[in-house]
């Protein structure tokens, strides 16, 4: 099973600012910008980011309107994949994490009363998870193209048609335990800065941008992280 742990993240300024809650990325005051820069440096020097991923690719053996059947008797329930990627030939079950380090530091800041720092570092962590997902998907898509397959855009449990209760199943399929990502009894992934996703692979897969996702999301008017079409 593929585990990749030596991933270099190329964090972009706008992705970080978006995850810090700066809508439109403008008007960031210098006091806050300086803290972000300082935190980025300390995240690097203190090795707070340990981007790691585990994934497994399963051939699709059948598809119903409400589930996908995979080789080895595995099933992914929900209508999202059958309706969005009816031509999928394979599914990649993926779990990405940046490890527990950053989260620990966020808690320390928070408990020490340094709320702004805690929040800004947490935002850097979220941006790191986003970037990790993009890089891992890119890597799997490249590999798939050598088999003549395209990758669709990634989907997460929690999206309509793929309930969050599928997360346990997905973690099992990706063998997330091998990289230390587990589900608590209340259904939470630990380390918390982790994400689970599915990439559908097939001859012609649907793709979309984050701005497309936001345009359709019912939180778009109030969400501090909305990406607008440029």
């Amino acid at each position: 099973m593929p585990v990749i742990s030596d991933i270099r993240l190329n964090l972009k300024k706008n992705d970080i600012l978006r995850r810090e809650g700066f809508r439109g990325y403008t008007r960031i005051r210098p006091e806050i910008k300086n803290i972000v820069l300082e935190l980025l440096e300390s995240a690097d020097s203190a090795h707070l980011l340990e981007p790691t991923t585990a994934y497994e690719i399963y051939p699709v053996t059948g598809m119903d309107p409400d589930k996908v059947l995979l080789e080895g008797d595995a099933v992914v329930s929900g209508s999202l994949i059958p309706s969005t990627f009816p031509e999928a030939k394979e599914l990649a079950a993926i779990v990405c994490t940046i490890g527990p380090g950053l989260e620990k530091q966020v808690t320390e800041y928070s408990q020490g009363g340094e709320t702004l720092r805690a929040m800004l570092l947490d935002g850097i962590g979220s941006a790191a998870v986003d970037t990790l997902v993009i890089e891992v998907c890119h890597c799997i898509a490249n590999e798939a193209s050598s088999r003549g397959l395209q990758a669709g855009s990634p989907v997460n449990p929690g999206m309509p048609g793929l309930t969050i209760t599928e997360q346990g199943n997905l973690l099992g399929l990706a063998r997330a335990g091998d990289i230390g990502v587990n589900l608590t009894s209340s259904g939470i992934m630990v380390p918390r800065k982790s994400t689970s996703l599915i990439l559908a692979l097939g001859p012609k897969m649907e793709t979309w941008t984050q701005a497309d996702v936001c345009a359709r999301c019912n939180l778009r008017d109030t969400c501090p992280y909305t990406v607008l079409h440029s």
Binding site: E20, G113, T115
Partner: peptide, 17 residues
Amino acid sequence: KSEYFIPDLVYSGEILK
């Protein structure tokens, strides 16, 4: 009114503290 963002809100709280 989205003239200030979340970090600004928290920053204001830190000054108040």
